[in-house]
């Protein structure tokens, strides 16, 4: 049986700003499988959110999809009409946004906002939708659910609002939930509660979840597979254990080295030197080459192809090519 739910192929997305075309997503390809939690990790501006806004066809001006395809359950999303797309959004594919403070409409009641997708997509009556909304709120562990329906967003705490957003996202039992930094704006203690909740819901509903994050801790706690993005491209794709124990790309290695671990309190963290590129006039080679400790001549001239390392593990790096000279990175990691 085909296990692929969402398949992104050679996706290109650009923003046409007044200073020129910014290539926010370049040649991105990977799959999201049914029932998995996939982590998409990268720094701000690496194109991880933009690629999903492209998939949902929610890009705002001046963003435009320049090429490639996105298949959802075997059907191309980019060739669907706006109306067909509306039937998918919030119904088969839903999103949880980063900032629970601003993602809820302050002038509408919570109940109103939760029942909206139900009434829109499931043709529920007002009463049915209300009953369903109560059970959804109970499901995301909001106490006093029935009473809270008539409350406004400002009467909820940040964590509670994120629960409301989660309730909204699971309302129609979607096949895919895209969670864009769902815990970034929350306190650390609340973060783990929200992650637990999402993991539980994923188990119960069998939904696929894509976690877009820059937090490797979130990835380690929740995901089964990871896609690493940098400079609007995919650098590495691997099962979560491989990412943490056998990273095959210098960028992934750099990310791991820049998070603190227990037992290294007295040592300095080693951040990746330099700053991420702006994709206004990208250099011809690998986007990470200017910051890479192992960069060779070819890295600055040509884009590396993907090299398959294991069953589900691939990485775009010249060091992995058979022609590359024996090097420290390879010896240490693979």
């Amino acid at each position: 049986m085909d296990n692929t739910l969402l398949s992104i192929r050679n996706l290109h997305t650009s923003f046409f700003t007044h200073v020129g075309e910014v290539k926010a997503v370049q040649n991105v390809s990977y799959d999201v499988r049914r029932g998995e939690i996939l982590g998409v990790v990268g720094e701000s501006g690496s194109g991880k959110s933009v690629s999903y806004m492209s998939c949902m066809r929610l890009l705002q001006e001046p963003g435009r999809i320049m090429g490639g395809d996105v298949q959802f359950k075997g059907e191309s999303l980019l060739s669907k009409t706006n109306r067909q797309m509306r039937n998918i959004r919030g119904n088969r594919m839903s999103m949880i946004f980063q900032n629970p403070m601003t993602s809820l409409n302050a002038v509408l009641k919570i109940g109103d906002q939760i029942t909206e997708p139900l009434r829109e997509h499931k043709n529920m009556s007002r009463a049915e939708a209300k009953r369903e909304a109560i059970s959804l709120l109970e499901r995301v562990q909001i106490p006093d659910a029935e009473k809270r329906l008539s409350a406004y967003p400002h009467e909820f705490s940040g964590g509670m609002r994120q629960r409301v957003l989660i309730a909204m996202a699971i309302a129609c039992r979607p096949d895919l939930i895209i969670a864009d930094e769902p815990t970034t704006a929350l306190d650390v203690t609340i973060q783990s509660q929200i992650l637990e909740l999402m993991k539980d819901l994923q188990q119960d509903l069998g939904t696929s979840i894509v976690f877009i994050t820059h937090d490797l801790g979130v990835i380690a706690e929740t995901c089964s597979r990871v896609v690493v993005m940098y400079g609007s491209m995919v650098m590495e794709e691997a099962p979560v254990d491989d990412i943490f124990h056998r990273p095959a790309h210098p960028y992934t290695e750099g990310l791991l080295r820049s998070i603190p671990k227990p037992g290294m309190e007295d040592k300095r963290l080693s951040p990746i030197p330099g700053s991420p590129p702006v994709q206004l006039s990208p250099p011809p080679g690998c986007p990470f080459a200017p910051r890479c400790n192992y960069a060779m001549n070819i890295c600055r001239r040509r884009l590396p192809e993907f090299t398959k390392i294991g069953e589900n593990h691939r990485s775009a790096c010249w060091l992995l090519s058979g022609h590359a000279p024996s090097n420290n990175f390879r010896r240490e990691n693979i």
């Binding site: 509306r86 959004r89 919030g90 900032n99 993602s103 409409n105 509408l108 909206e116």
Partner: peptide
Amino acid sequence: FRQDYMIMARAKGLSEFKILFKHGLKN
């Protein structure tokens, strides 16, 4: 239109009419 809750309303698959009059205009 630039606010997060408007993108959210769109992500919920609401019609343009509802997005404008229910979520947008009241604000």
